[in-house]
Design a protein around this nucleic acid. Structure first.
Length: 311
DNA sequence: AATACACCCAACCGCACGCCC
DNA sequence: GGGGCGTGCGGTTGGGTGTAT
């Protein structure tokens, strides 16, 4: 748990953050504490909330004996300590939902987070900034531009769909029945004709090499194993499917991460439709993306998105 | 092995809004 | 109306850590 790591920090390090602009913060023990939370503080907060509940954060901070602002307590609780906070990498389903909802609502992180149970607005915001915006920087486009939106829709989302499909086909036979029976929110769905829904994200060619389950270069100290979840399927298990189908244009069954997948019905194999001339992408990016075929684009770069996205 | 660089994300900030007195 | 308080949101920062040189 990261809190343990943080709590191992020396108290002096707690004073190093820029936010500790007032040097007296550390000189006067009566002043409010800032910086990383210690294990003791976490325990105080958890115990107090367990006994008295949330709310009235300033009062809570005082009564719990925490020398923290109410704001800080609230943030710590909501983003880290709350029992239903989900940790670990975002699943492809969750990433897909984020991309989709962000295209609808923009930087309304809390609103987006409402549709990803267990995920906080902070986490989603961080995901967007570190993964999505990074990819935009690589392509030298503005992450909020229509050009990048196009790239997301035509490259990134299909890649996610492919990942989801991969996980569903590999897990459907063995685990779907288990998951379905275990999760009341995952109900039986009628097969959906995705083509009829004008679902036309093309699936790009497969990456040159794939190392299943090891796309992340760095060690994830919030690994899924830590909370006992399967990185492929469980992160969205608790998502209310009907809710998702209301907010997302994607078929609800995608968010099961399992179940039978009408592979060819949603996949429109239409490379002509991918004519880059139809993209509202700047010339420089178009050059990157290639003019005549998928290979024209540096898919080495694009597939490195797997690492960026940790899918 | 040492150093530099890049990345991630917890925690901060300022601001806005709603409610109550 | 307006001041105070609590809460929520989006943007930003910087320490810790992984990776490259």
């Amino acid at each position: 748990m990261r809190a343990v790591t943080m709590s191992s920090l020396s108290s002096s390090s707690l004073c190093k953050k820029k936010s500790l602009s007032s040097s007296s913060d550390c000189d006067n023990s009566d002043q409010l504490r800032r910086g990383p939370w210690t294990l003791e503080e976490d325990n105080l907060l958890i115990h107090y909330i367990a006994c008295h509940g949330e709310g009235r954060w300033n009062l809570l901070a005082k009564r719990a004996g925490l020398r923290r602002t109410g704001k800080s307590c609230r943030l710590r609780w909501l983003n880290y300590l709350k029992p239903d906070v989900k940790r670990g990498n975002l699943s492809p389903q969750e990433q897909l939902l984020i991309l989709d909802l962000h295209s609808k609502w923009g930087n309304r992180w809390s609103k987006i987070a409402q549709h990803l149970p267990g995920r906080t607005d902070n986490e989603i915001k961080n995901y967007w900034r570190t993964r999505v915006q990074k990819q935009a920087r690589h392509l030298k486009v503005d992450a909020n531009s229509t050009a990048f939106q196009d790239i997301i829709k035509r490259f990134w989302i299909p890649r996610l769909l492919q990942k989801i499909e991969g996980s569903t086909t590999s897990s459907s036979s063995s685990s779907s029945s288990t998951i379905l029976s275990e999760n009341p929110t995952v109900v039986a769905h009628q097969p959906v004709n995705y083509a009829a829904q004008n679902f036309q994200y093309p699936i790009p060619p497969p990456p040159p090499q794939e190392v299943p389950g090891n796309h992340q270069g760095r060690h994830d100290h919030n690994s899924d194993s830590e909370n006992g979840s399967n990185p492929c399927i469980s992160s969205t298990e608790s998502i209310n499917i009907s809710q998702i189908s209301q907010v997302s244009e994607y078929p609800a069954s995608l968010f099961h991460g399992m179940g039978s997948f009408p592979k060819d019905s949603y996949y429109v194999d239409n490379m002509e439709a991918m004519s880059l001339a139809s993209l509202s992408v700047p010339a420089g990016v178009v050059q990157n993306l290639g003019e005549s075929n998928w290979g024209g684009y540096d898919f080495g770069d694009m597939w490195s998105m797997d690492e960026l996205m940790a899918i």
